[in-house]
Amino acid sequence: MSINMKKIFLIGDSISVHYGDYLSALIKECYELIPREGIKEALQNINMPIGGNGGDSARVLGFLKAQEDEERLNYDVLLFNSGLHDIKRIYETMEIQVELSAYEANLREILKLARVHRVMPIFINTTPVDDEIHFSFLKENGGITRYHADVIAYNHAAEKIMRENDVAIIDLNGYTASLGGNLYCDHVHFNDSIRKLQADFIAVKLAEIL
């Protein structure tokens, strides 16, 4: 491994947990994907923001601030995503986990943190939600639901912030949606074949950006 190889830190929701190993294998000749602690723990309950599952934007920000405190925020590239947990709603009340204004503020703080430490941020947008499929798993998810309309709104807000700050965006949402039907293995996670394709898409985009 070259000592000049760029170090990339990936943090995101459970979707990134699923494609992370595939991505690491694809880019290992060019980039070092820094291992995220707690991946095995995250896989034990992929719906919960535990271990290496970044969770919502507030949790991602908190994780990066903890890295800063421990002087571990020293990689070249921050490849990050937030959104899928931010848009979780309690079905009975429709209360959303992270309001849009708070989501936007968290993303701006993440970018500010990256700038301070001279880390290049790259944003991966939030993958699609199929309202009907997600709703069919409502009981299994403790009354938590998501809506594609929120995915659109939060992605739009995130992309506006990234453009304002000249941050590259990887459109994983658009790519995943283009793959057609039979995407999901449950309410929101993707079949293994889709995870491999997502990793390949991100690897190609990373090469273009970097």
Rank of each mutant, 00 (worst) to 15 (best):
L206Q: 04
E164W: 12
L33I: 08
R118I: 09
N53E: 13
N45D: 09
L79W: 08
S2H: 05
A25M: 14
L43N: 05
L23H: 09
E208T: 08
Y147H: 15
A25S: 13
D21M: 14
Y31W: 04
T145S: 12
C185Y: 02
M5G: 08
L84W: 10
Y147F: 15
I169S: 06
Y22E: 06
Y175M: 01
P49I: 12
I11T: 13
E32R: 14
G83Q: 07
G38L: 08
F137W: 15
D166C: 05
L138M: 09
R118G: 13
S16Y: 08
M1H: 15
E70H: 14
V98I: 08
K139T: 13
L100T: 06
Y19M: 09
S14R: 02
A105D: 05
H187Q: 09
G62Q: 11
C185M: 06
R163K: 14
I152Y: 13
L138G: 04
L23E: 01
G38H: 08
S57Q: 06
D171C: 03
I194K: 12
E29G: 09
S2R: 01
L61N: 03
S16M: 06
N173D: 12
K6S: 10
S16T: 11
F123W: 11
Y147K: 12
R72H: 03
H187I: 07
G180Y: 14
P35Y: 13
E109C: 06
I133V: 15
Y147P: 05
L84D: 07
L138C: 00
D200L: 14
G52S: 10
R115A: 01
G20M: 01
L111F: 03
V129Y: 10
L197F: 14
I194C: 03
G180R: 14
L107S: 08
